[in-house]
Design a protein around this nucleic acid. Sequence first.
DNA 1: GCAAGGTC
Length: 827
Amino acid sequence: MIDLILTEKFSVASDFAKALGVKKKAAGCFEGNNFVITWAVGHLVALCEPDEYDPGLKKWALDTLPLIPEPFQYKPIKQTYGQFKVIKKLLTERNFGRVIIATDAGREGEVIARTILLKCGFLDKSRILRFWTSQALVPEVVRNTMETLRPIGDYDRLWRAGYYRQTADWLIGMNCTRVLTIRLKDLFSVGRVQTAVLALLTDRKQERDLFVPQTYWTLSILFTGDKGNWTGIWFKDKETRLTQAKTAFSLYQELKNHPLPGMVQSLTREKKKEMPPYLFSLTDLQQEANKKFGFPAKKTLNLAQVLYQDKKCLSYPRTDSRVLGTQNLDLVRAILQKLSPAYPKIFTGVQPGQVSLSNNRVFNDAKLTDHHALIPFKPLPANASMDESKIFDLVIRRFAAAFHQDCQFESTRVVTLFAEQTFQTRGKVILVEGWRQVYPENQPDKETEEIIPPLAQGDAAMAKKVHLEEKKTQPPPDYTDSLLLKDMTNPGRYVSQENIKKFFRGDIGIGTQSTRAQIIETLITRNYIVRSGRKLLATDKGSYLVAALRKCPVSSVLTSPEETARWEMDLNRISLGEDTDKGFLVNIKRFVTAAVAELKEAPFELKTFKQESQDPIFLGHCPACSQEVQETRKAYACTNKNCSFVIWKKIAGKHLSFRMATNLLKYKKSGPFKGFISKNKKRFPASLVIQQNKGEWQVSLDFEKPEPQIKPQAPSESVCPVCGGKIIEGKKGFGCANWRPDDGNCLFVIWKEISGKKLTQNNIATLLEGKATRSYVFKDPKGNKFKAKLQMVHTSPTGDAPKNFIIEMLAETNIPAEVISRVPCSR
DNA sequence: GCAAGGTC
């Protein structure tokens, strides 16, 4: 008999095919060796829209609410109908011995499988088995798990929890959105996740608006003694702040005029350890990329998806886990072997002893969720973009760090007594770098780090200088993607009850890995929040919605992360079978009915909202004048008023996406694309080019065969990556034309000669594009020859200096490989 | 015109 295997996505199906020796690929499935392996594309089946129950519900009207379908119905999703048909055909036309469900091991995976089976009318549970593992699907894991298939009935509870999640979200979303939109006369979407997240943002805004900074003072003394200098900060009862001006100034005077030396009162040295960070979950990666590079959560997800799907060098990115399964030890060994020679500096400190199952910060089955942590599979392919390589770099460093030893340091605390007051000095000396050697840029700054002389108790301390500093208390910071993701993952801090708090920490969040980035974008498109630089700020419209809901005792629950996370906890209990679950949906229906009734009657004050101005997003630079090009309603147009350059969004009947326009600007040529429509309504393919026509820069269609990507021929056709100015040739380098102080004093330059190698114009053009050159021979200062590639990269160590470029010299074997040396792009 | 959850 032949068995059917159904996976959640194509990549998993191909893992199965490999493990089970199935070669032949039929339409929409693999077949051979007594298996047919097919796949879903995430959800293939969705809950019906209101008007699919009743066409009358197309119109939004108060008297049709609440909408509570009995029973709920499912429909195949249009976009993936093709794959649904393949599965349906297999299930109905062929007689399989067993149907093995191998969707992801979690609640949504169960929903995906069950709704497909339901919609295909395949209900013979005796033949359905569940494949269940969260380990990385290397062939051995697939084969082992195939030996321990479970009856599908074991997962009925999980399916029920998933069904409740799905229907509860539908009921809350459809009903509350409709009633509020009608009552407030403007589109106001409401949902279990989005509204709770919005409330975090509006609360933060309010907190900051109402914040009154308090002035306080700190006092410090630069002490000097036989052994050297150290700075002590005044403290009393663990408090270093002086809140009264009078006290602060009189103490300052007293210390300044104090004639006698003080002495070292106590000195404590403590050895401490810091364990390596956990491997990345998606949210962790998004937070880190946002902090380091300012990437929005969605951008990081997209980049990771490309690295997983196209470049195949990262594992599946949408994961909640920070650990791997114990069956993946050999996989880890193999990966380390592949990566170590490619990135020797990063992997040199890996401890073989840490690559073992006793390292339960890495290998921990109990902490595995649907997927395992995000890890690298192989070196980054050479065709990766700069942004992709940044993400990859974060992941391999995390991976390497996990197998290093702890960082060990000695922390020292000195208390100095002076004028009967106490002063503390803290120092930290790293004894064993351990995993921190993977993050050289994060080392404490040698110059600012206090180096404490080898003091001993009783040493005399002379005051060299007394320093009084006035400071102000700070409000909590505005949300960024990073901070918001953190609070969505860990809403524990919003929970008042201590016992629940524990459970929330880590285990329960608002939204899921796959959707958190999307939720942020949804709030933006609904005009509830705006992006301003790296910040995410609630708009008046967002604050108005939250305030309106909070006036209503029942509906206000939606604005409470605590309450919505509690629902999530109930669902968890249902999936574990720890709860009689009958009440859940009844309660949700009761809630929705009460909320709708309340919102129908509530006395709202109507307000209208203008669309708040967004920070414009630039596509690139204008070929005519080098100013920024920006998206408008109908076009992508130059922001310079005196320049008429424009790329229309519709050309010959075809819509140009933001991405297409961006590429077109960057390479002056993009495509070919299908789907242009001629005057006699025929469809035809063409490329888009930007070229000069009678002195005017224009977009036109090009029917020639596609050429490989066009590079700027000369550096002078490129623009300065710092300020967008023209690049001009100087004696020793190509630099920014805006170098004069009056023009912006831009100091960007690429020197014509680097370590003995003279760069060609082509080299410089390549560098300006952000790409790596081919390998050349260079000479170090001692005259030794070495081979390397050059690539210009963007450095922003603290996030405060966004426009700083350097040229890295990369060892020739791999990209982004070992950086041998760096040359700043600055005069 | 609406949710949240998958995957692309």
